[in-house]
């Protein structure tokens, strides 16, 4: 079984995996990082979104071995210790989550959006979330939260 090594949330992690192992399986099963969720088997739901080398990606669509040497960030690496990231804080403040299952993917997608667009409009947020399903919130508060989170991030930037 090939050995893969990657930097996950700032720490070097490695493990032996079967070549067919998906990144999401490696994160959840091998590394025990269960914050990244699986909601489908057709790459439609976005519950599994993480960042690989700074870009948002559905971790069910990439093999662990493809991420050998990569820089990976998961929901577990977003907060700064006990301090929530402004985007996480915005989800809490605006009730952008109910059951919490889609939430890690939503937050990771939102952060990816802000990387591309510092001040997204409601319409742009809704379009960006094309690949993220939520069955609980009707998206209303997720959209509000992402807008507020982006604004808070802009303020926090020097």
């Amino acid at each position: 079984m090939p050995n893969v090594t990657m930097t996950v949330n700032g720490k070097t992690m490695s493990g032996n995996v079967e070549p067919r192992t998906l990144l999401v399986e490696f994160l959840r099963e091998t590394l025990g990082l269960t914050g990244t969720h699986v909601g489908c088997d057709t790459s439609q739901c976005g519950c599994c979104v993480v960042h690989v080398n700074g870009d948002g990606i559905k971790s069910c669509t990439i093999l662990a071995v493809q991420c050998d040497g990569a820089e990976v960030k998961t929901i577990e690496g977003v907060a700064n210790g006990d301090t929530l990231h402004p985007m996480q804080e915005a989800f809490r403040e605006h009730h952008g989550l109910q059951c919490g299952y889609c939430t890690p993917g939503m937050v990771m997608s939102a952060l990816d959006l802000v990387k591309h667009n510092k001040n997204p409009s409601e319409q742009q947020i809704r379009e960006w979330l094309e690949g993220n399903l939520c069955r609980c919130t009707g998206y209303h508060n997720i959209v509000k939260a992402i807008k507020a989170g982006a604004e808070a991030m802009a303020k926090a930037r020097p």
């Binding site: 990244t36 929901i75 907060a79 989800f91 809490r92 989550l97 919490g100 939430t103």
Partner: peptide, 19 residues
């Protein structure tokens, strides 16, 4: 009141069955 459960869900610390 802001939800007590949010902290764990927002940081990937929820405990779902498959976890």
């Amino acid at each position: 009141v802001r939800r007590k459960e949010d902290l764990r869900f927002l940081t990937g610390k929820g405990h779902y069955t498959d976890d």
